[in-house]
Design a binder for these strands. Sequence first.
DNA 1: ACGTCATGTCAAAAATTCTTTACACCGCGG
DNA 2: CCGCGGTGTAAAGAATTTTTGACATGACGT
Lengths: 72, 72
Amino acid sequence: MSKRPPITNRVKELREANGGLSQAALGEAVGVTRQTIIAIEQGRYSPSLETSFRIARLFGVGLEDVFGWEGD
Amino acid sequence: MSKRPPITNRVKELREANGGLSQAALGEAVGVTRQTIIAIEQGRYSPSLETSFRIARLFGVGLEDVFGWEGD
DNA sequence: ACGTCATGTCAAAAATTCTTTACACCGCGG
DNA sequence: CCGCGGTGTAAAGAATTTTTGACATGACGT
């Protein structure tokens, strides 16, 4: 049952905007693996709220500056 | 390894502010069970971003109006 | 007293997120 | 040419989220 969640994300953009942080470096910085970052960037599943918060706060922005809800 | 995530929530407040919506009714409205709502309200684990978005949007507010990051 | 609704707990199963490992491709510097 | 960093894919398993079902309690109305 794991469809693609109706969620958009700007992780890749933010990574590149922050001095070209690599997926591996981002993962390490927020405490998840590179695979997890890849899956999130590709929207393969909906991350946990905790992981989402960690990513947003690392970039110093709000949750909705990183993740969007399709159909707003 | 499932500790309590550093996340706060105002689900109960919002439920009561919206005409006393019950946990069961909220669950049904966002497509999860009553158990899930109870667990989220009690902060027993960090919900998926999708579930979080559905709850916030049902109340017509943003993600961070419902969930907060401890240590901001 | 009885029934019902709302909340809560417990436990086990199902589904999803996350990890680990391994391999592949591309662009670039040496 | 070769090595290396960065990205991508795949699959198995661990960990976490969510479901299902059962039972308990207090509040409330009849």
